[in-house]
Simulated assay, not measured.
Amino acid sequence: MKYNFDKITERRNSGSYKWDTPERDDLLPMWVADMDFPTAPAVIDALRKRVEHGVFGYTHVPDEYYRSVINWFSNRHGWEIDRSWFIYTSGVVPAISAIIKALTEPGDKVIIQTPVYNCFFSSIRNNGCIPAPNPLIYTGDRYEVDFDGLEATASDPKTKVMLLCNPHNPGGRVWTTSELTRIAEICLRNNVYIVSDEIHCELTYTEGGYIPYGNLPEQFRNNASVCVSPSKAFNIAGLQIANIITPDPAVRRRIDRAININEVCDVNPFGVAATIAAYTHGSDWLGQLVDYLHGNYTTIRDFIAEEMPLLKIMPLEATYLAWIDIRATGMTSESFTDMLLRHTGLMVNPGTMYGSDGEGFVRLNFACPRSMVCDAMHRLKAALDMHFQA
């Protein structure tokens, strides 16, 4: 392998939210969804060059930025994006919040498919809206969309927006074209606007990869905004940059106004430089990263199957987030994560962070060197052995 993902980079005392928030030095933090790998060398080189310039004033986003994003999604995913559809902003969460502000009034409802990314809840509530959960159906080894429930929820006149997580966090699903089309049909029929968070789109393990919502037919594409960013795939979340892709010009004007009201209309020079470098020169690095991440997943899957039969890991189609079914232990998600932390220092997320439908699950971030994954598995087993022998 050309790139060394086994190398451990010390992140303590670097201002890392993931590593420096915990107060114990013996902790192994596998909670916050960023990676413990340095970003692609091409991105580092571009940032180094930008730093050496020495002047960091207000940023003009150049043509090269738009071309890099357009070419990346065209070449990798067959999604043809028009430059006029872009609104850049400081992150996917600010993007989602601004779109909700633009398209709703306080008291309106916003559909979410729970369990789902926890910031969806805050983005809805911060705009005075009401989360309208349409829980995913857990079949025992994957999540499916409850289309009957979606139809009923979307038909409520107070429901104005649906937040779609594509690929899904924390369930790890890559939605198929047929699933996306049924969602699109239901929402269009009920005048519900779709906001598709596609931040994990490059981290997929299925043969066909992810399907951009923007690849659906025009009538569905015009009823949606898609939020994308290189931040997850290239581990540059701290550089704070994302794009909202909105084909409908009238909706785009409303979102642009909300972006300005929320004062998230400016981006920094490092985010721009990193995006151009990642999308222009980062494909080879990303391919090897995805292979390595899948190896981490299979390491966890096999260890759990062989050593911890009480647990069950969700078959993973995307993301670097293992969704682990702990219900056979008889413990709640909170008590399980507290037990792990107390006895072994392993820090993971309780499933209830992602809504009440996440009860009985925990989320573990395995985007780290494999030695750390193995350490986490041994800590997990030690905690279970200690608890059930007590």
Rank of each mutant, 00 (worst) to 15 (best):
V290F: 03
D266M: 13
I276W: 05
I199P: 00
D291W: 04
P249N: 10
P247F: 08
E263H: 13
Y213R: 06
L289D: 02
G214R: 12
I211A: 06
I194P: 00
Q240P: 02
A224D: 02
N260L: 07
I259M: 00
Y213A: 04
I194K: 00
C265G: 14
R254E: 07
N268Y: 15
V192K: 02
N222L: 12
L293I: 06
R254A: 03
G214L: 14
Y210A: 15
H294N: 15
I199H: 10
A224G: 06
L293K: 03
R254G: 01
Y210V: 15
P247C: 05
N260I: 13
N260E: 14
A250Q: 14
I244F: 03
T246E: 07
I276M: 03
A273K: 13
L239P: 07
F234W: 02
Y210H: 13
V251F: 01
G282H: 12
E202L: 06
R253V: 10
D291H: 10
Q219P: 08
V290R: 12
N262E: 15
P247T: 01
A258Q: 09
R221Y: 01
N190K: 13
G282N: 09
C265I: 02
Y292D: 01
D197C: 03
G287L: 05
N260W: 10
E202Y: 08
H294E: 11
I276V: 05
A258L: 11
L289W: 03
H281G: 00
C227A: 14
N243D: 15
N262I: 07
Y210D: 07
V226K: 04
R253S: 09
V272F: 09
A258W: 05
A233W: 04
L286Y: 08
E218M: 11
I245E: 02
G271W: 09
D197N: 11
V264L: 04
